[in-house]
Design a protein around this nucleic acid. Structure first.
Lengths: 205, 205
DNA sequence: TCTCTAATGTGGGCATTGTATACATCCGCA
DNA sequence: TGCGGATGTATACAATGCCCACATTAGAGA
């Protein structure tokens, strides 16, 4: 996996920076945010407790790097979802991808949006902005001009709120197809009036 | 403030349970979630580090109690906002109250929705459900029946997403009136056609 | 009024965590 | 060959969550 002269893994690790990041993401996926301690990360990377400090000034920096990775993954998922749909009906699959990302990576999602770690880290903020730009760009074309900003904000808030509520267990989500159908129904109900959405279709694809 | 036979505050505190809760809420308001340590709470309550354990089995129980209080406050704010408006235009002030609560108590809001502490605590879940029931009840009357569930889910997701995004700094919110105007614009754009919003009817109740 | 008991608060202690400092080791370049 | 900077280690410290044994007190029953 590593391609940076991995030969013997002796005193020097090779690419400890990346190893810490993946170890931290694994730990986060296996548990919740409290599972990610710098020492556990170091342990998993097979390295002394303080070694990560050579690559991240403090724990928040590691968390911010994780959040950055999360935003990039979310961005890619949104792009892919957007390309597989007709221009007028892009919003539904993108909403499904957005919520789906949250379902698949709940702790990471919480880190990306809930944790203050990204606030002071420009890389994380940039990644977040980039992600939202995808949403805006892919959807903005089909929006009536007079309500452009309000609609974009509303659409973004809608998907984000859906994801947050589903992840919080406030909305039933045991079954993925049922969840996708629910998202489709909600999105079409909310956007069908504004000029987006595909009219009156409410069957699953 | 306390009315539980506060006489001398000697060895026994009088109502340490409540004192811990308010101390914890103060600490949360002054900083972020990491500011709330059980020991700091005990310190502020003027009591030994382990005294809180007589009233809360562990830290999560205290956090859950805080979240419960938060949900009750949010519920009250929603109720009050809903009563001060005409029936058809209730949703805008309620959305403003929802977001306003988040702005005023960002750390508490994050605790209420982001933290897994409320998951295992039925009191917290009940308070959350109660809060959402207010939103649903006050709005549900004006919704077309065929899309009832989808609309309620969407409306809830919309306000919740708005709050989350504003609090994350993704949406400009330096000025409160401007924020309220933005919320009004977004909500009316998304909901105006469905039967709510500032719409076409003008009979006063 | 006196005593016993359970509730409540204290004190000491342990493992874990984030982080600072000093030291060891190694790679690349002169 | 030798040296310097980058990288990892060792040691240490304060803070935290939580467990245990003990002290204190309030209040019910005699």
């Amino acid at each position: 996996m590593c391609a940076v002269s991995t030969s013997k893994l002796g005193y020097h690790h090779g690419d400890l920076r990346a190893a810490c990041l993946t170890a931290a993401l694994e730990l986060l996926a296996e548990g919740d945010e409290s599972t990610v301690s710098l020492r556990a990360v170091a342990r998993r990377a097979g390295v002394s407790p303080n070694a990560p400090y050579r690559h991240y000034p403090d724990k928040d920096a590691l968390l911010a790097a994780m959040a950055t990775r999360g935003f990039h993954d979310l961005r890619d998922a949104l792009i892919q979802a957007g390309t597989h749909a007709a221009e007028e009906d892009r919003f539904v699959p993108m909403a499904q991808a957005y919520v789906g990302f949250g379902i698949s990576n709940p702790a990471l999602f919480g880190l990306m949006f809930g944790h203050p770690c990204g606030r002071d880290h420009p890389e994380t903020s940039a990644a977040a902005a980039e992600t939202m730009a995808v949403l805006a760009e892919r959807v903005g074309t089909a929006v009536p001009a007079d309500r452009h900003d309000a609609f974009l904000t509303g659409a973004w808030a809608l998907v984000h709120g859906l994801a947050a509520l589903v992840m919080d267990g406030k909305l039933a989500a045991d079954d993925r197809p049922a969840l996708d159908a629910m998202i489709r129904s909600v999105v079409q109900t909310m956007l069908g009036q504004v000029g987006l959405g595909s009219g009156a279709r409410d069957d699953a694809p």
